[in-house]
Design a protein around this nucleic acid. Sequence first.
DNA 1: GCGTTATGCAACTTCATGGTTGCATCTTAC
DNA 2: GTAAGATGCAACCATGAAGTTGCATAACGC
Lengths: 113, 113
Amino acid sequence: MSPHSAGWREVSRAAPVFAALGDETRLALVARLSSDGPLSITRLTAGSAVTRQAVTKHLDVLAMAGLVSDVRRGRERIWELELEQMEAAGAYLEHVSKRWDEALDRLKQFVEE
Amino acid sequence: MSPHSAGWREVSRAAPVFAALGDETRLALVARLSSDGPLSITRLTAGSAVTRQAVTKHLDVLAMAGLVSDVRRGRERIWELELEQMEAAGAYLEHVSKRWDEALDRLKQFVEE
DNA sequence: GCGTTATGCAACTTCATGGTTGCATCTTAC
DNA sequence: GTAAGATGCAACCATGAAGTTGCATAACGC
């Protein structure tokens, strides 16, 4: 696809979301939140293999992609999932799959003619 | 999540797929294939911003993640999408979303009691 | 056979990412 | 008000990923 054709914007929006999910530590954080609900940085760190600082960085990356958001509660910072972007990513995958099927249909049609 | 709790294997399977999709160039290749059908490396390179070698590397990454596969046809190598992994990724996203909703329900229940 | 086209291989550069440690700051609980 | 707990900030290191260039090889077309 050329950088100027239709669909480019979709790609450049979806990529950062997938990139954010494409790290085991981050995906584990997402999994942890999804099963246990909103959690503080310290609680997320306990149960992760890495440092609190590393967890903080990963949460920042997820936040940049719009996958999580945080709320201050006293001295702690509570993180929770933000499903919008995840649903958008899922929709994108479905879209790609559907177009692929159509492309194969066109190809089959072409071969048969 | 601890590295030994349930769900860890899912995470370590899903992460590489998302990682493969988390690059604009690669996602553009996927988009191109999905709209135009199976294509050779040269054809994929025309319409991409980068070198043929770069495209080849990206296709290799996508192949490692099980997202594409190739077939030789004479002197060219034809690449096509492999939807299985993409559908698995979509299913994973749905799973996470569902568990998050349930976690919020439990939380609400807990607060009300 | 020979030029052209399509791809493969390898070395190399650059830069972002994941991770760490050390110290500062801010809340909260007594 | 003071100690302990939760987080913020910054410097630093190591590795891998993305991209390039240059050359080698293999398959067509005529």
